[in-house]
Nucleic acid binder design. Structure first.
Lengths: 147, 147
DNA sequence: ATAATCTCTATTGCTTTAGTAGAGTATACA
DNA sequence: TGTATACTCTACTAAAGCAATAGAGATTAT
């Protein structure tokens, strides 16, 4: 799994909309771009993508804008990552669709990539944007992790 | 973490050399390329890299070839992955060197990427090529994982 | 009408990836 | 000492992915 800027921006945008869940619309592209420090035209594209993925909805016109298509509790982090940045596996051979491997039976590495895949999925598929909203509001709470 | 072809080839090559640990040299580039189905000139580059990383050694000349620079038990999967494919983190902000983040203190996602990083590292840093040799010899043992 | 917004498609510059090419250097051995 | 065999090094290239940028078009509230 590799999170691109596109993915990072998408996640931050959904979180921002989640923080204003209930408001319709919750924010315009311009507002979101400014608040999150994302190039406006790039964010446009990302939001259109998120709309196609049914994560957000929009309203056009003079009081238009974007808002979540469902409750924050119903959007998992993993869903968004997979939708925007594609697969979560560390290597292509670990996927249902893949068929180009000569030694599926004997490859010593496949099981390891499966493990990595499973461990990653376990984390990102068990966090919803409701959780993230709570974490964000509980806020300025300093990170537990040390670099 | 994303494993490239380069990384995949490097790992398979080291495993092949590990299977012939003790023989000096264990194999020539040509032999390795043929057995592992890797483009010869590409493998040349990768082997030079692995040599710079002190994973393998070589002997030139008419009975030359490559062999491991240390015992398979002393080479961790994670070391090779990090050396060839770079970082293991899912996103750049989760790294000692990174400094470009506006909201290190409040970003709700950082802790998650740390977790993913930790989970991945735990797996790949706890497997040596000795383990992989054993798995390979125990062999045609069918994979535990279902796709 | 018109200002504010979202919608859609194309284009661009940069970097990474996966090779390919070819000339050079070292070694064993007849 | 010549030659076959093998590693060494640098440069080049084609394709894809990434991170935008550009601009014209469609909707809607007032």
């Amino acid at each position: 799994m590799r999170i691109t800027y596109r993915g990072d921006y998408a996640l931050k945008t959904i979180l921002e909309l989640a923080l204003h869940y209930g408001e319709e619309p919750a924010a315009t592209i311009t507002e979101l771009a400014k608040r999150l420090d994302i190039p406006t035209k790039f964010l446009e594209q990302i939001l259109l993508d998120l709309k196609r993925g049914r994560f957000v909805e929009s309203r056009r016109g003079s009081v238009g804008g974007y808002f979540l298509a469902k409750a924050p509790s119903e959007i998992k982090l993993g869903e968004v990552v997979r939708f925007i940045d594609g697969s979560v596996e560390p290597i292509a051979c670990v996927s249902k669709e893949y068929s180009g491997c000569r030694d599926m039976g004997t490859c010593a590495f496949k099981d390891i990539w499966y493990e990595v895949n499973k461990a990653t999925s376990k984390i990102i598929d068990n966090i919803t944007f409701e959780d993230l909203v709570k974490r964000t509001k509980k806020t300025s709470a300093v990170s537990t992790y040390q670099i």
